[in-house]
């Protein structure tokens, strides 16, 4: 598989504190990768290392298949980024702010108006950024990240400070960029609900460790489906299931089955019915992604 971003045992240590510990991030081409973790988990530090702003203590970063340590400039030509709080020159206008970046990329002049239109700031292009609201500054940051028509967008908490309609706009924009131009996007957030609505794959980081990395579907699967069975004579029924090699748990008169496909569950039900048990209830206990995320991070911190 072709990975746009691939890190190998990426580690960053600040003095005694291990901020990022042996990350193996893999982002396939065209994905929207949700980089998820509580505040202070090491997301921003990781992103800084992906952009070459910080030097890893150990480990390597490959972007577009090239080694970041060796070909930083070539790589950065194809990346658009927004790191943490928006950076801007307050005494310059929105247009001038973008101009300082456009010049360095050598992008065409028209591109400034294009990106201002994309993020909806055309009306205030000639105003000083000093007076902008946080949401407007954030949009300006996103506009800046699009100036060079990047192949990879790295956005650190891009919806910070945006109002709900702004969040939806940016979400749709990112989906569109990924769908139409095949841009790969890394978007970090501490809110799972946000990632859930946009990402196609997910990496979860907690205390500097990557504790989950897979498609969003796998994460949903992981979070779902604990099937609870209430039957008569439940303890004997449980023993029956165990003896037939079914993975089942028993607690307080209830048999529970986790991570099973629909067919497996049908099979279990048939088995019980054929052996004369009365099935009172078959329930699905659904954990929200949020719960899963919390459980993942608390499990990780328990280690």
């Amino acid at each position: 598989m072709e990975y746009i971003v691939e890190t190998n045992r990426l580690t960053k240590r600040f003095g005694k504190e291990l901020a990022v510990n042996g990350l193996d991030i893999k982002i396939p081409k065209g994905e929207i990768y949700g980089f998820l973790g509580p505040n202070g988990a090491g997301k921003t530090t990781t992103i800084r290392m992906l952009l070459g702003l910080m030097h890893p203590t150990s480990g390597t970063v490959k972007v577009f298949g090239k080694d970041l340590a060796k070909e930083r400039i070539e790589i950065l030509k194809q990346i658009g980024s927004l790191v943490e709080n928006p950076s801007y020159y307050p005494h310059l206008t929105a247009y001038e702010n973008l101009e300082t970046i456009r010049k360095i990329y050598g992008a065409p002049m028209e591109r400034i108006n294009d990106v201002l239109t994309i993020v909806g700031l055309s009306d205030v292009a000639k105003k000083k950024v000093k007076g902008f609201s946080l949401g407007m500054k954030q949009r300006l940051g996103i506009a800046a990240s699009l100036l060079n028509n990047p192949q990879l967008l790295i956005l650190d908490e891009p919806t910070n400070g945006l109002d709900p309609s702004g969040i939806i706009e940016i979400r749709n924009l990112l989906k569109q960029l990924a769908a139409e131009y095949g841009i790969t996007i890394l978007i970090s957030s501490h809110l799972l609900s946000e990632i859930d609505q946009i990402a196609t794959s997910v990496g979860v980081i907690s205390k500097g460790n990557l504790i989950f990395q897979d498609s969003i579907e796998s994460m949903r699967l992981y979070s779902m489906r604990k099937i609870l069975l209430k039957v008569n004579n439940s303890e004997r029924a449980w023993h029956l299931l165990i003896s037939r090699g079914v993975k089942a748990d028993y607690e307080k008169e209830i048999i529970s089955l986790s991570n099973m496909s629909d067919d497996d569950i049908a099979e279990v039900v048939r088995l019980l019915v054929e052996n004369g048990y009365s099935i009172y209830r078959v329930e699905e206990e659904k954990r929200s992604l949020e719960d899963t995320f919390l459980q993942m991070t608390s499990e990780a911190s328990g280690i």
Binding site: R48, L51, G52, L53, R72, I73, E74, I75, L76, K77, I79, S81, V83, E84, N85, P86, S87, Y88, Y89, P90, I101, I104, Y105, G141, A144
Partner: peptide, 17 residues
């Protein structure tokens, strides 16, 4: 000028040495 809103991080993530 660069310290005020930490534009260093924006500027140094551009393709320049």
């Amino acid at each position: 000028i660069e310290n005020e809103t930490n534009t260093w991080k924006q500027m140094l993530a551009l393709p320049i040495t």
